[in-house]
Write a protein that binds this DNA or RNA. Structure first.
Length: 339
DNA sequence: GATATTTGACCAGC
DNA sequence: GCTGGTCAAATATC
């Protein structure tokens, strides 16, 4: 690979980063505008009229569309990988990924075509392990929770690591749907030293997997599409906007009780909870030392600009179908991309 | 047998 | 060179 190619990739990455930053900023402004307008409308309606039940506010609708557009654009750019040397999003269901580690189902590009079927533990497979392209930057956000399964997505643990200067190991989870749908969402869970009853959960990337709308509504307690980097105030704004939102899913979590992985893991149950429909006690993905605790409070602290905001969570989402259709429109090369 | 977890190895980024 | 993120064979569980 020559230096010109590297320079081009570097430039592309910078451009993408700048575009994302601009979009995030624009999104933030739009959110603030939405709050402002909704506040004004709220006062207006209170003073003069009543909103007919079920009749959507056109301002809110419009703002929601604007925000959705921002989120879509951000998602597309966030999934753009300059290293892939193609100008298309790399998250395409069932497609191969140029970054070898990103799609474990199709890693052949890592090892010169090794199918992986005859891998030995060491030696023979040398050069295969750890072969991946680490995401230099992806949208991340951190929550603090007493349970690691509070988001109710289906996660599969793929690693655990001792981290320097930390008492407890960090566990790595990826979306269960990664092999089948290429969902790139991951999360890292680490028990807090100060309070071992609490877990710091860092989410990385957005879910692109498809779940039913009903499931989606019940299993996405907070917005994977809106909350960007931990230093972004957008999420804080939105969090405040939704501070009084629905808390039913949290109550269902509270009622879930202590469930260890081994306890609920019976065949078909796995499928159920993998689909994210686990609201009846089979939802936990808990590793050996990640036990749940008395959960009467069950709140989460969202960190924005280093400040914690305690809130219940019920945000708006980027709909996965929207995302897919977006890819369709943005990605004319789908399926034929030269990864 | 199928699926999930564990854990040592490998590699990218700093 | 060190650290952290990911891979994948081995192992565990159902």
């Amino acid at each position: 690979m020559d230096s010109n190619s590297n320079n081009t990739k570097s430039i592309k990455r910078k451009v993408v980063d700048q575009l994302v930053d601009q979009l995030v900023e624009g999104c933030e402004f739009a959110t603030q505008l939405q709050l402002l307008l909704s506040h004004q409308h709220s006062n207006h309606h209170t003073d003069q009229t009543r909103i007919v039940s079920g009749d959507p506010d056109p301002v809110d609708e419009l703002m929601a569309k604007i925000l959705a557009s921002f989120h879509k654009a951000i998602s597309v750019l966030d999934s753009f990988d300059p290293a892939a040397n193609v100008s298309v999003p790399i998250v395409v269901e069932g497609s191969r990924n140029a970054s070898c580690g990103d799609d474990s189902a199709t890693p052949a590009s890592c090892n010169g075509g090794d199918s992986g079927e005859s891998r030995k533990r060491l030696g023979v497979g040398k050069g295969k392990r750890g072969c991946y392209t680490r995401k230099k930057r992806s949208h991340t956000w951190t929550v603090e929770a007493r349970r690691i399964d509070e988001d109710k997505y289906a996660w599969r643990k793929y690693g655990q690591k001792e981290i320097l200067n930390t008492k407890f190991p960090r566990s790595y989870f990826r979306c269960t749907h990664k092999p089948t749908q290429g969902c790139k969402a991951t999360k890292q869970v680490q028990k807090k030293e100060q309070d071992p009853n609490m877990f710091q959960i860092t989410y990385i990337g957005y879910h692109t997997c498809h779940v039913s709308e009903e499931t989606q509504a019940n299993t996405e307690p907070f917005d994977h599409g809106i909350t960007m980097d931990s230093d972004n105030t957008l999420a804080a704004t939105i969090a405040q906007d939704h501070v009084n939102a629905n808390t039913q899913e949290q109550e269902s979590l509270i009622g879930a009780g202590v469930v260890k992985e081994e306890d609920h893991n019976s065949g078909d149950q796995n499928k159920d909870y993998c689909e994210g429909s686990s609201t009846n006690g089979d939802l936990s993905l808990v590793w050996q030392d990640a036990m749940m605790f008395d959960d009467h409070q069950h709140h989460q602290n969202y960190y924005y600009r280093g400040e914690a905001i305690t809130t219940s969570h019920q945000f708006a989402f980027i709909d996965n179908d929207q995302l897919s259709s977006l890819f369709d429109s943005y990605c004319p090369y789908e399926g034929t991309s030269a990864m």
